[in-house]
Computed example of a mutant assay.
Amino acid sequence: MSRANVSAEQLKLFIERIETLEEEKRGIADDIKGVYAEAKSNGYDVKTMRTIVRLRKMDENARAEMQALLETYKSALGLEG
């Protein structure tokens, strides 16, 4: 896109939309931190909860592959059980 084709108003609107979304993202991140803090104050292990959230996001096949590899590594290191 050449400089002549750049619409200052359109560019400004894109930038403002991005800034608004970034602000909302920060707010959501703060909300998530608050939920983890609340869970921690109720005795839950936040590190484990984060792992569970990450696992639930994964595709079932990817999760199974990761679990199999983890078991293989644990076995190789004598960590079964």
Rank of each mutant, 00 (worst) to 15 (best):
L70H: 09
M49N: 01
R26Y: 11
I28F: 11
G34T: 04
R17D: 14
G43Q: 11
N5Y: 13
A37E: 09
L69F: 05
V46F: 01
M66I: 10
E22G: 00
L21T: 15
K40I: 06
R54P: 02
D31W: 05
R3N: 14
A39C: 13
E16G: 00
E16T: 04
K47T: 15
Y36D: 00
E19Y: 03
F14G: 08
R26P: 01
G34S: 04
M58V: 07
K33L: 05
L11K: 04
E23A: 15
I28D: 05
E60G: 04
G78H: 00
N61R: 08
T48M: 15
I15N: 04
I52T: 09
D45M: 05
R26W: 12
E71F: 02
I32L: 14
K47W: 05
R63A: 10
Q67H: 11
A29I: 13
A29Y: 06
L55V: 03
G34A: 07
A8G: 06
R56S: 15
L79D: 01
E71R: 08
E9P: 00
V6Y: 00
S7R: 05
N42A: 14
E65G: 08
S7D: 11
I32R: 13
S41T: 08
K74P: 00
E71H: 06
E60A: 15
A68D: 14
G43D: 13
D59Q: 03
E65R: 08
G43T: 12
I18S: 03
Y44T: 10
V35P: 02
R56M: 14
R17L: 03
A39Y: 05
A29G: 03
E9Y: 01
F14M: 13
R63H: 04
D30W: 09
E38A: 11
R17H: 06
R17A: 08
L21W: 08
L13S: 03
N5V: 15
I28N: 10
K25W: 03
D59M: 01
L79P: 00
M66N: 02
E24R: 10
A4K: 06
E24S: 06
L77M: 09
